[in-house]
């Protein structure tokens, strides 16, 4: 038996025995459709792509200033073009 390979590894066996699993019987019996799984996938939290910039004050300010600057820039360009 392969389990004999654990002979002499009592400490490891003790640790392994602590890994108990509780089977969620109720959830297992509730079969989800592909659509429900897709909705769950869409609703699951994803990583914030701007996390690295928004954690610092400078980065946070930048994310506020950039759209403002873009808006001002676009306004100026449209004024120059149409006047």
């Amino acid at each position: 038996m392969l389990k004999d390979e654990f002979k002499g590894a009592d400490k490891l066996k003790t640790e392994l025995n602590q890994f108990h699993v509780t089977v969620p019987e109720q959830k297992l019996r509730q079969k989800q459709t592909t659509w429900q799984r897709f909705i769950r996938y869409l609703a699951s939290p994803a990583q914030d792509p701007f996390e690295k910039t928004t954690v610092t004050t400078a980065g946070l300010n930048l994310t506020r200033i950039i759209p403002l600057a873009c808006g001002v820039g676009i306004s100026i360009v449209s004024l120059v073009i149409y006047t």
Binding site: Y41, P45, A46, Q47, P49
Partner: peptide
């Protein structure tokens, strides 16, 4: 894994 490498910010955590 493929999703995570292609679109890391869209892959669910």
């Amino acid at each position: 894994k493929k999703w995570r490498s292609l679109l890391p910010f869209l892959a669910p955590q």
